[in-house]
């Protein structure tokens, strides 16, 4: 009767070693998710939105300086600090391991954003404006957020839903795991599809055969700000670099 209760746990692996800091993921995310254009004015106000951002740190002193990149998006924590603090349940954890933001329920207290250690939650200070030329480019599968509410990376849940529908139409219980391998093609979040170096891998961590599950057991794995015990669903893989410092970046 019911929609089959799919026992999945969506998860992403970010291989820092492969990231070149090219920002393709940022652009892909921007256009997939109707994220408002980050204008110079918004940057000056510190109100620009990028659901995924590539942080850049410098290591060493000139001229022996190295740039380190780390892409950061919503970590979809299993014990997310943002969830219990929302007074109206606008953000919560669903049974697929997603940290969900419900736009229509949000009243905009911004408490969740304060309580997010990764600073990946964004507030619509202004009504978003698109130039006329871009209005038809908006993704119809994604809500265009109005002012006064929070938003953040959703792991492209609209693509997840579509893949589930496609699977169901074919009579499958769940989307085939192959489908999440970008090289095979059917489905992955926009950033994963856009990454030219395959630094981002997405899939079902509960499926032992998935790529994500095997990468997640790498001995290079770590979580961002692990000491907070947020148990993120985004797993980072350390850089393989003998010269890499111990994290004392500028």
């Amino acid at each position: 009767m019911a929609e089959p209760q799919v026992d999945v746990k969506w998860s992403m692996v970010v291989d820092i070693d492969k990231c070149t800091g090219c920002q393709a993921c940022v652009v892909a995310c921007q256009s997939e998710n109707n994220v408002p254009i980050s204008t110079q004015e918004l940057y000056d106000q510190r109100r620009q939105m990028t659901w995924i951002r590539v942080e850049r740190y410098w290591e060493g002193d000139f001229p022996d300086v190295k740039a380190r990149y780390i892409p950061i998006m919503c970590q979809h924590c299993d014990t997310a600090p943002c969830e219990p603090v929302c007074p109206v349940f606008a953000t919560y954890h669903n049974n697929e391991g997603l940290n969900v933001q419900v736009y229509n329920r949000c009243v905009g207290t911004r408490y969740c954003a304060n309580n997010c250690p990764y600073q990946v939650r964004f507030f619509n200070f202004w009504e978003p404006v698109w130039p006329d030329s871009l209005k038809n480019q908006l993704n119809p599968d994604v809500t265009v957020r109005s002012r006064g509410i929070m938003e953040k990376c959703s792991f492209c849940v609209q693509r997840l839903r579509r893949s589930e529908r496609d699977a169901a139409q074919n009579g499958d219980d769940r989307p085939a795991d192959d489908a999440f391998d970008p090289s095979h093609g059917a489905f992955a979040p926009a950033c994963v599809r856009a990454c030219p170096t395959d630094a981002l891998v997405f899939g079902d961590a509960n499926n032992p055969n998935s790529r994500v599950a095997s990468l997640a057991h790498s001995d290079r794995r770590y979580h961002l700000l692990e000491h907070l015990g947020t148990e993120p669903n985004v797993i980072y893989l350390k850089k393989i670099d003998p010269e890499a410092g111990d994290g004392n970046h500028e």
């Binding site: 009767m1 019911a2 919560y92 669903n94 969900v100 419900v102 329920r105 959703s154 849940v157």
Partner: peptide, 13 residues
């Protein structure tokens, strides 16, 4: 009534 999913993210994303 019909035991369909009521997860918010079924309709809101």
């Amino acid at each position: 009534a019909n035991n369909a999913p009521t997860d918010c993210v079924i309709c809101h994303y």
